[in-house]
């Protein structure tokens, strides 16, 4: 899985950090910081949830085929 974040779309809600703090963090202004663009398999479920609940649709996933 590859994680792609769109900083321009990010609204700084921080839902992704609450769900997957090993993969996402926030700058002081709230904009997302991607800590791990290729997370380990055991994180896939929470990363998918983070991408889903992101209220700005700023997280995109390229899933393993």
């Amino acid at each position: 899985m590859r994680v792609i974040v769109d900083e321009d779309k990010c609204c700084g809600a921080g839902q992704c950090v609450l769900l997957a703090p090993k993969v996402f963090d926030q700058r002081d202004d709230g904009i997302v910081i991607l800590l791990d663009e290729s997370p380990a398999k055991e994180l896939y479920t929470v990363v998918r949830e983070a991408a889903t609940v992101c209220p700005a649709a700023a997280i995109r996933l390229e899933e393993d085929e």
Partner: peptide
């Protein structure tokens, strides 16, 4: 208000 990290922690 302009304090995103602290806001997240206090949630």
């Amino acid at each position: 208000w302009n304090m995103v990290k602290q806001t997240r922690q206090h949630r």
